[in-house]
């Protein structure tokens, strides 16, 4: 299928996506397909004005896209690494980043509020500069540099030379083995919103447009995601998706039965979100209206929340113990 314009791609996306909503794997493959179309279209547009890409490059996605955990609605988190270090190349790829970002926005992917996008020079660099930047992040250990490293950890190539990203990430993984860095990462991510109250009830928003809804992103998704990401640093795991991260943890650290338990619950969570989240726009996709859930649904959600908290606590203990 040949689609030249962002309009055509956007139309195709909206026409097709509803057929996929209840199937998580397909939905994420589909997002990748749309990304592929948008990137190709952006390159074509840029080629007309500025010529072909001047150097091999890799376009990668981060956040939920990087982890293959997108819902119907998703925002943009992406970057570019290119081979040859030159000012002209940087200008070209920043342009490309902006084109892609505009195309994605048109196709319904909200721009990243934190500007983690290939149009931002911080996330669009030559390989050499990326290496320097990672070196800088791992040696500064500030709140900001830790956040950047955590974001980069979920990077996954979707277009171009994936080896470029691979090299950068390998470099990062080697540097993060320092214990001080792991501790800071733990402190940075291990605060999460409570989903279950002391009486065992689901805790919902009390004010705002999502009153009566539980914030499933903060209470359920993030505990799993953050814990699995820390485990991947801890054990040197390359994968970006939460389930593979958990299953790749050596059996000596987490018993196979236990890993299975966490993975099952995370799978259930992804399906639960697809089935129940509001899904009228990007933000509402993080919320589930509790009064619409059946008794069984509520029970299932509580079990998922419990498992997320268990994994979260277990990871904290593992890292704290090693540090001591």
């Amino acid at each position: 299928m040949e689609m030249k314009t962002f309009e055509e791609i956007s139309e195709f996306r909206w026409k097709t996506i509803n057929d996929l909503v209840l199937e998580h794997e397909n939905l994420n493959k589909f997002h990748d397909v749309i990304y592929g179309y948008i990137i190709s279209a952006a390159i074509s547009r840029l080629t007309l004005r500025h010529g072909k890409p001047p150097s091999p490059f890799c376009f990668f996605v981060m956040g939920s896209a990087g982890r293959l955990e997108q819902s119907i609605w998703s925002d943009q988190d992406h970057g570019i690494a290119f081979e040859d270090d030159s000012k002209h190349h940087l200008t070209y790829f920043l342009h490309l980043g902006s084109e892609i970002s505009a195309g994605l926005e048109q196709a319904g992917y909200k721009k990243c509020s934190g500007d983690v996008m290939a149009s931002n020079p911080l996330w669009c660099k030559s390989r050499a500069e990326w290496q320097q930047q990672v070196q800088h992040w791992t040696s500064t250990i500030s709140w900001e540099s830790i956040r950047h490293l955590l974001i980069l950890a979920d990077a996954r190539p979707v277009f171009g030379e994936s080896s470029l990203l691979h090299l950068i990430k390998e470099n990062t993984a080697n540097s993060v083995k320092s214990e001080k860095l792991l501790t800071r990462m733990l402190e940075n991510t291990m605060h999460s919103k409570k989903g279950i109250g002391v009486l065992g009830q689901l805790l919902v928003e009390t004010h705002g447009p999502f009153s009566g809804c539980i914030n499933i992103k903060e209470t359920a998704i993030l505990p799993f995601v953050n814990a699995a990401r820390l485990l991947s640093f801890y054990c040197g795991i390359e994968s970006t998706d939460t389930r593979t991260r958990i299953s790749s943890v050596p059996d000596s650290i987490i018993a196979p039965q236990e890993k299975k338990y966490y993975i099952e619950n995370f799978n259930a969570l992804l399906s639960f979100r697809l089935a129940h989240a509001l899904q009228t726009d990007y933000e509402s996709g993080h919320f589930i209206r509790v009064e619409h859930l059946s008794k069984e649904d509520k029970k299932e959600l509580k079990q998922i929340l419990k498992a997320g908290k268990e994994l979260h606590d277990k990871t904290s203990r593992l890292i704290e113990r090693r540090i001591q």
């Binding site: 009390t206 004010h207 705002g208 447009p209 999502f210 009153s211 009566g212």
Partner: peptide
Amino acid sequence: FNKDGSANN
């Protein structure tokens, strides 16, 4: 209050 009746803080 929002249109759907929910309250803002």
